[in-house]
């Protein structure tokens, strides 16, 4: 049985968000695929997967030093997930899809 993968959430500073970042996190927490566990800490470190939730396309929190804090990252930049545009109501679905693919690729 594969060990549970720790998912951490990191936010940008939120100076001009186009999306409700906390809602994305809440909804993700409610529909996380099996085999993943959301860590309550926002301090990155030893995360299997980091979800960076940035409010706009600038994604100013996407910095090299942060990227080193998790093995893989899924990056939300306003209305895009990993650079692919997504409607606002499908952001969480897109993240879950990516997590599921990660789970499959490891099994």
């Amino acid at each position: 049985m594969d060990p549970v993968k720790i998912v951490g959430i990191k936010y940008c500073g939120g100076c001009n968000p186009e999306i409700d970042r906390s809602r994305v996190a809440e909804e993700l927490g409610a529909c996380l695929p099996k085999g993943f566990e959301l860590t309550p800490t926002s301090v990155p470190g030893r995360w299997d997967i980091g979800v960076l939730i940035c409010g706009c396309a600038t994604a100013c929190a996407n910095r090299p030093e942060l990227m080193a804090e998790a093995r893989r990252w899924i990056i939300v930049c306003g209305l895009a997930v990993d650079d692919v545009e997504v409607p606002g109501d499908r952001i969480v679905e897109a993240i879950v899809e990516k997590l599921s693919k990660i789970a499959l690729s490891k099994s």
């Binding site: 990191k10 936010y11 940008c12 500073g13 939120g14 100076c15 970042r21 926002s42």
Partner: peptide, 8 residues
């Protein structure tokens, strides 16, 4: 606040 600490 985790939602803002990155700037603050």
């Amino acid at each position: 606040d985790p939602l803002h600490e990155d700037l603050m």
